[in-house]
Every structure is written in structure tokens, then in C-alpha cells.
Design a binder for these strands. Structure first.
Lengths: 228, 228
DNA sequence: ATAGCGAATATGTATAGACAATTAAACCAG
DNA sequence: CTGGTTTAATTGTCTATACATATTCGCTAT
């Protein structure tokens, strides 16, 4: 056991009391002066602990009023969507990518106007077809992609390593496989698919628009969190 | 425009340079001493700015070495899963909940052993069936739920307001509707459904296990982020 | 060359004090 | 009682300083 910094200890002790329910939502948390005396430290130290808790959303602080345990939670959880290649490898499977189509085009897609690189291909885990991907990449925003070897590296993986995004939107839905999609994935038409549509922007300009269709029986999105 | 605190201004200026790509991943960020001179302030102030950036994962700090722009992003994004009632209302629709089954039982489910309240019902948006829910709630962990009016309030909404969770797991998948599910949702058997399975714990003990089956054509999970 | 060791350096933590900003509560005038 | 005004409690920000801690770099002995 390593000696944790004092502000960390204070933070954890208060956090524990909140998570255990000992301090109910809405309850008043001791003020900085009080905690300062209690721990025999400077106000900056307890301030750091309380600020961290406020940042994490566990407490709410109001001047003149004090610090209070925040009402339950933002009523929401978050799901992490990782890069597919990493995710597959993390599960102990071997990942591979099969490029099927690559062409430069002038997109008339309302969400991605202008010159784009259009890519289609299949993601495989242990050689089994996992997902079909259709992607548009703005060549105006990412000219380097034209010289990238996207037959060897999946475009999503390549992009993550080369282009930081500033905004992104994910849509997750279920649908029945169209005949063409069923053929690409080797399943029956009408079989359920999990579809992820992701758009990313960089400073307001669209970078990429991607549809990933997963074979439902072969993929699940999983996310686990601790509230700490 | 309100005058932002100095540490906030410093944080934002550095953040902007990273997000714009002016400072590439791996590049060295000016040290605290340097920034201190540059902004004419105390070291604690720049420290606060840099610590916040480190906490957000935008930079990496190593003693003796310095501060560096972190490698692209955690290669992952985050999807917010809100409470269903809120989500529907946020879209401007009216939300309602139809309780179908409520019984106390002794669960032999491996993930939720012990006495549970088992609830089944349907979520409606503007009167249209949106999702079928099957839920187990541990009555050992949440005895108050036995007296809650879960015919009036959906159990998920009730729980969010009463029981803080400390851990949660979400699984999202697609599947074809079973005949029973199709009947409950008023769709055809075999139609694609989006399924969310969520388990939450409080201090290691399971609190609730829920399956929500959405009519694929009527629901999508959407999440949008700005990195700024 | 190489392994080990010491020193330099950048961050991490903490103190004590000061003033600013916000706002709940007390007070007061009508 | 009502509405506006003052007061004071509490958090927010910042300074200047000090020492702790980790880690790279270079020196030295092998």
C-alpha cells in the first residue's frame, strides 16, 4: 500500500461516505474551514479534494451556501466505443481487414459534400466475417489518406492514428440485412444486424462518415464502469 | 463574454493548440516555469491548467521529462445512455409506461441470486409501443422498491432517483423478435430489435438486471460529443 | 562498451495568506 | 407582510514559497 497524497485521501473518504449512502443526496458536506481543521491541513488541500468531487459530479458547490451531495446521477451512463481492431485483439482474437472497394468520388451526400475517398470492406475476427463497413473520408480534410495503404490497415484504425477529431456523433440501430449486405457478410437476407453510424468532424468540417453493419449473433457492444 | 479565470484561459489556449493540430501528439508542451513566465503568474496557476488537461487525457506528464501532447485519443468514444423516460421527453414526445407483470420471486438467475422483484412492461412514446422491458430488482439491496408505485413510474426511472449505482455494465445487441416479444410490441416475429442489457451494482452487490428490447424502426441510440 | 551511481530537472504536493465573487440570510423601510 | 438593501458566510482564484518525488542524463569505474 502506497501512501496516497492527502488531498486524495480526503477525496476518497468523502466519496466513500457518499457512495455508501451515509451522506444522502442533498445533505450538506462539511465546509472547507471545517475539513481543514479536521484534517489539520491547508484550505487549498481540502479545496482540491472537493473540487475534484465537484468535477466528477458527486457534489455540488455553491458560494455562500456550501457543498452538498449531488442528486443521484446525471441519470445517464456512458458506453465506450472502441476501435474495432483493438476491440477484437483485446478479446484474444486475430483481427483482419478485407478491402473490397476503393474509389475517389465527388460526394453529393448532404452530410459529406465534396471530394471523398469511398471505401468498402469487411472486418474479420479469427477469419470469421464480423462486420461490413462503408466509409466516406473527406480528401479535402485528410489528403494524406489517398496515399495510405488502406488495404493493409482498416481505414478507421488509420484515421484514429492520424487525425484527431473534435466532434463526433454515433448512432446505433438494428436492422434486417439487405440482400447485398447479407451476401457480403455470408448470412441470410433479413437476419438482424447491429448498425453503427459514426460521423466525425474536425473544427466543424466533416472528416468521415462510416456505417458498420455487424452480424448480430457475432457481436455485442459491451461497456463496464465504476462510478468512481 | 465573461472573464474566465486565468487557469481556465491557459487551459483553453493549450487545448486549442492541441486540437487544432498545431501541437502534434508527442510534442513537448512548455514546462510550468516557462508558462509561468509567459503568463506572468504563479506556478500553481499553470499547474492547475496542466493538471486539468492531464486529467482529461489530452496531455501526459512525467516528472523530470516534462509535459507532452498525448497520443491521439484513447481510441475510443463514449456513448451516453440516458434514462428512457427522459430521452423520450427530450425528443418532444409524451412518455408513458404500461406495467404488465409484477411479482416477487426467488431468483435463481446466476447474476442476480436471492429475492427479487420481477417486472415486465412496455415503454410508449406518444402512445406508440417503443420497447419491452424485463427487469429484476434485488429486494435485499432495495427493499423500498416493494412499496414503490411501479405502475405509475417506470422502475428504471424510479431506481435512478432512489438508488445510486457504483458500477454498471451495458450490453447492446441486435436480435430477431421472438413470437412472445413480437406480440408484446405489436410487430412481426423475426423483425429486428435493438436490445440493451444493463446490470448495475452498488458496492459489489447486484441491484438490478434489465433487458430492454426496442423496435428497431422506432429507436436509435444517438450520442454526440464535442471535444472542445 | 557498459553497468552503476549521483545530480539535475520537471512535476507533485502542501502551506499560509489574500482578495474576489456569489448568494443566503438578516435587516429595514414602506 | 413586502420588497429592496446590507451583511456575512462560503467558495473561487491566485501568489509566493518550500520540500518531496520520480526520472533522465551524464559521469565514472569497471
Amino acid at each position: 500500500m502506497k501512501a496516497a497524497p492527502l488531498h486524495e485521501r480526503i477525496r476518497r473518504e468523502i466519496e466513500a461516505r457518499i457512495l455508501s449512502g451515509a451522506w444522502a443526496p442533498g445533505a450538506r458536506v462539511p465546509g472547507e474551514i471545517e475539513l481543514m481543521a479536521q484534517y489539520g491541513c491547508a484550505r487549498m488541500t481540502v479545496n482540491k479534494a472537493l473540487s475534484a468531487l465537484a468535477h466528477a459530479g458527486l457534489v455540488e458547490r455553491r458560494r455562500r451556501a456550501g457543498t452538498f451531495v449531488a442528486r443521484p446521477r446525471s441519470q445517464s451512463m456512458v458506453l465506450e466505443i472502441a476501435d474495432l481492431a483493438r476491440e477484437v485483439v483485446a478479446r484474444g482474437q486475430t483481427y483482419s481487414w478485407q478491402l473490397q472497394t476503393r474509389r475517389e468520388a465527388l460526394s453529393e451526400h448532404p452530410e459529406m459534400p465534396g471530394p471523398v475517398l469511398e471505401v468498402e470492406g469487411v472486418h474479420l475476427a479469427d477469419g470469421m466475417r464480423l462486420a461490413f463497413e462503408h466509409r466516406l473520408i473527406s480528401t479535402a480534410q485528410v489528403p494524406e489518406v489517398l496515399t495510405a495503404d488502406i488495404a493493409a490497415t482498416a481505414p478507421g484504425t488509420w484515421l484514429l492514428g492520424h487525425v484527431p477529431w473534435t466532434e463526433a456523433e454515433n448512432r446505433i440501430s438494428a436492422s434486417a440485412a439487405s440482400p447485398a449486405l447479407a451476401r457480403a457478410l455470408g448470412i441470410a437476407a433479413g437476419d438482424p444486424c447491429l448498425t453503427i453510424t459514426r460521423r466525425t468532424w474536425r473544427g466543424g468540417s466533416p472528416v468521415t462518415l462510416v456505417h458498420q453493419h455487424f452480424v448480430a449473433s457475432r457481436h455485442e457492444l459491451v461497456a463496464r464502469f465504476g462510478a468512481a
